[in-house]
């Protein structure tokens, strides 16, 4: 049996809404509602859903940026929330995150080299010349010229910034990579290049990938499995081809028709 690298068991996140001057409780919002999913080495799972369905909140729970109200996340079978400090650092290293907007997720005052050195320093991975060498390797892996090492984020294009975001995530050799809408703010051709790069990286290193997107076409081109999220819940998941050709849930059917821009089948929604 293959061990799950990342395992989320019935995680939920509930927010309380407050209203009026006295901040009275105006009900709760279930952003993520009892979601269970797991990733093993070499897995590529696509998570699709429309804006507001809870996919980003789920991603933040998986990397430990948001604490779930119920349920638990296990990394290599261990709970990061309950682990000791040093143990937690090594567990967190295993799961890395790539954000949608590379401009806002990079420090504008740090050069590419500094950005890529930081995770190496935090996890004590390489020092001195070895660290510089490691930065060059990372640039090569995301196909950026070595001359970009001294540049600031504003001196890079959108696609180049996203490559830096990916290199930063890859710096600590993660076992799981979570990408939240990594191509949503990029041009079609640049997005396609990022997808190709991700495909190559996952195949080489057998890094597990959770690819979050509203774009079913991008998900289908990259992932072996797809999970569909709606109003906080995972409503359907399965192997990509089977799910796309024989969707069981009407909402999945609706998403497929939307992705192919089927204008002639009337929608009830």
């Amino acid at each position: 049996m293959t061990e799950a690298l990342l395992d989320a068991r019935e995680v939920s996140k509930t927010y309380h809404r407050r209203a009026g001057v006295f901040q009275r409780d105006a009900g709760t919002i279930r952003a993520v509602d009892q979601v269970t999913l797991s990733l093993t080495a070499g897995d590529t799972l696509g998570l699709v859903g429309e804006s507001g369905c809870g996919k980003t909140t789920l991603a933040k729970i998986l990397v430990g940026l948001v604490a779930p109200t119920a349920g638990a996340v296990f990394i290599r079978g261990q709970s990061a929330a309950r682990a000791s400090r040093s143990k937690r650092l090594s567990l967190k290293r295993a799961v890395q995150f790539v954000f949608q907007d590379p401009m806002n997720s990079l420090n504008p005052r740090m050069t590419v080299e500094e950005t890529l050195s930081e995770p190496l320093a935090i996890h004590g991975l390489a020092h001195g010349d070895a660290r510089r060498q490691r930065v060059r390797e990372l640039l090569a892996r995301v196909q950026l010229p070595l001359t970009h090492a001294g540049r600031l984020p504003r001196e890079l294009s959108g696609g180049e910034r996203q490559r830096v975001g990916m290199a930063r995530a890859l710096a600590v050799d993660p076992e799981v990579l979570i990408c939240d809408e990594p191509i949503a703010s990029l041009d079609v051709s640049v997005g396609a290049q990022i997808l190709e790069l991700l495909r190559g990286l996952c195949a080489q290193q057998r890094t597990a990938l959770l690819f979050i997107s509203h774009d079913l076409r991008a998900v289908a081109s990259l992932c072996h499995r797809v999970a569909v999220m709606k109003e906080g819940r995972l409503i359907e998941s399965g192997p990509t081809e089977a799910l796309l050709t024989h969707p069981r849930h009407p909402y999945t059917e609706l998403l497929i028709r939307a992705a192919t821009l089927d204008l002639d089948t009337p929608t009830s929604k």
Partner: peptide, 19 residues
Amino acid sequence: ELIRYRSMMSLPRRNTSHD
């Protein structure tokens, strides 16, 4: 190039009556 990117991102064909 544009068309190559588009075909990279196409969904598997379905055997449905309307398509």
